[in-house]
Amino acid sequence: MPTMLEVADLGHTYPGKDGAHNAVDGLSFTVDAGELVCVVGPSGCGKSTLLRAIAGLITPTRGTVSLRGTRVDGVPSELAVVFQDYSRSLFPWLTVQRNVEFPLRGLPRSQRAARAREALASVGLDQAGRKHPGQLSGGMQQRVAIARALAYRPSLLLMDEPFASVDAQTRFELEDLLLRVRREQDTTVLLVTHDIDESVYLGDRVLVLTKSPASVVADLPVDLGDARDQIKTRASETFVDLRAKVAELLRGASHIEDAKLI
């Protein structure tokens, strides 16, 4: 598989009054086309900084991000983002249909509408197009955000803790929804989460980050196959082993940091 995303020696330092904050340092990894890679790390470790640097929303102070071999400079046109906070990332003044059409401005109107309907159908919201986001439940709103990202047909879909703000049941549904649509549309996904179980359940690979400044401590392949099941997969030996491994790595990552502090 060709490489979709390459992050090389990425570092970002936020200037601040109380001294600069080094959020990310020496971060390197690649994501192949069609892969779903989960990035897991302790909260506040710089995961969001990483994601914003890939999305071109911030210019990293060090290192490079390349999409299909082309260095990212500004916001890449073939990339979509799903943020954790769906209620603030959907536009409340637009209907659901118009929200999904929002990124498709370059297309003729009829094509835009058709693509949005198709994307809404794929997340099971074909009836909700005329509603406003405020009239939908949190889980449904996040589906709209996912539909919007899918309608854009991005080469790379970035997801920043996409299921962290919904209840457990909805979360399982949305996780399975993601697995289904990314297979249907052959989308490359980079998903950032602080949830170990989620990273193992969803990922083809799990990247474990250290505490801030974030760098990769482990790159674990997930040998759970393509078909995953919320109950069976989570009970399987491979899953349990992997989640223990990730947890240990994360604990180790924080221990190293603690040791440094002393």
Partner: peptide, 23 residues
């Protein structure tokens, strides 16, 4: 986050003003 979302979808500065800020 509205502005960031629009920008992440490749919306330019002026378009963010008319499509996000104004509405």
């Amino acid at each position: 986050l509205h502005v960031e979302t629009a920008r992440a979808f490749g919306t330019g500065r002026l378009a963010v003003l008319t499509r996000v800020a104004l509405p």
